[in-house]
Design a protein around this nucleic acid. Structure first.
Length: 98
DNA sequence: CCATTGACCAGCT
DNA sequence: AAGCTGGCCAATG
């Protein structure tokens, strides 16, 4: 994976403030690599489990949680609720997006 | 080298 | 609102 892309993505995700969320596609675009939403997802999936990056604040463009029903998905929902972001039917209200 | 696989997305029905 | 479709493109087998 291109290190430029990887570093830019990390920086942008790290900058998402608590209580807010963004999407894979939006992060890719801000990183300067539009059309690479899937690779943002790939990077998130490859993060070490002890990472400090707030990966749980990245959702799909349809405002849904990725990987619903899997352990990672449940962790993501729990973490969002812990920072007062409601998750209703696997979905986060629009106004929580950046 | 060709095919399949994704923490995805915009457009259309 | 919800489901399909085609496009995306590096990684993997």
């Amino acid at each position: 994976m291109n290190p430029e892309f990887r570093d830019a993505v990390y920086q942008i995700v790290a900058a998402i403030p608590p209580g807010h969320v963004s999407s894979y596609g939006a992060v890719a675009k801000q990183a300067g690599f539009p059309r690479h939403a899937r690779f943002v997802g790939r990077l998130m999936s490859q993060l070490p489990k002890d990472t400090r990056l707030p990966w749980h604040r990245v959702l799909r463009s349809d405002r849904r949680i990725a990987l619903v029903g899997t352990p990672a998905g449940e962790v993501q929902i729990q973490r969002l609720r812990d920072e007062n972001v409601p998750v209703l039917s696997d979905r986060v209200p629009k106004h929580y997006f950046l």
